[in-house]
Design a protein around this nucleic acid. Structure first.
Lengths: 104, 104
DNA sequence: TCCATAGTTCGAATATAGTCGAACTATGGA
DNA sequence: TCCATAGTTCGACTATATTCGAACTATGGA
């Protein structure tokens, strides 16, 4: 497996996005990716959880079209698909990110 | 029970909102309430599901602070708490409603 | 008082999710 | 080639959700 496959935006449903953002761990991941302003490895996010749990959450974030993961060497670089999500669901991710930053 | 109790907005978490909106049936309810522009009874929404299922979904929508239910006679009148949600999580519900109307 | 209406609650079945250890894969470096 | 690193996959367990029929509650009207 050379690179991880990601869904096309037209395959992504609003419910997928909502579901992915309904878990505190995933919301935390999304918030950190947004604030980092650069690609982060899973390890850099370190939420004190086993690798398998983190992997599970990333899988769901990818399936929801929220996160894009590029394999670079042994690392998986993760980034939010902000622009694409914004185009498909204007305002949704942005307002969630604003709400997230207020509460944290 | 005279009237149904609703959470205060400061008790509502972003994850509650996201979770409530992650189910297609509930998203449908929210969309219809928004478009109706007036209070609707559970029955008026009629999504072809048993009363007990609808009641379950309304319970979750109420718990998330999304829906307010006023008892009037034998009917339960439901409305979105648009203004309050907008104040607490600006843009979130509104952008979801726009996305909903596009897809429907 | 009796009945119909509108919804809630209960209970049980089924399905889906979250968690985490252990084994696995892929890459890069010594 | 051997090893370490970074993540994924698998499997099992536990927890939480969804669904829906049946029984219940509350109100209004005949």
């Amino acid at each position: 497996m050379r690179q991880i496959k990601h869904p096309n935006m037209d395959q992504v449903e609003l419910t997928d996005i909502m579901y992915a953002l309904s878990d505190p761990t995933r919301l935390e991941i999304v918030g950190r990716l947004a604030n980092a302003g650069r690609k982060l490895t899973c390890g850099e996010l370190d939420l004190n959880r086993p690798k398998s749990s983190m992997s599970h959450h990333f899988k769901i974030l990818r399936a929801a079209g929220l996160v894009e993961t590029l394999i670079e060497g042994t690392e998986h670089m993760n980034a939010l698909r902000v622009a694409e999500i914004e185009q498909k669901f204007p305002g949704v991710l942005q307002s969630v990110l604003i709400a997230l930053n207020k509460s944290s």
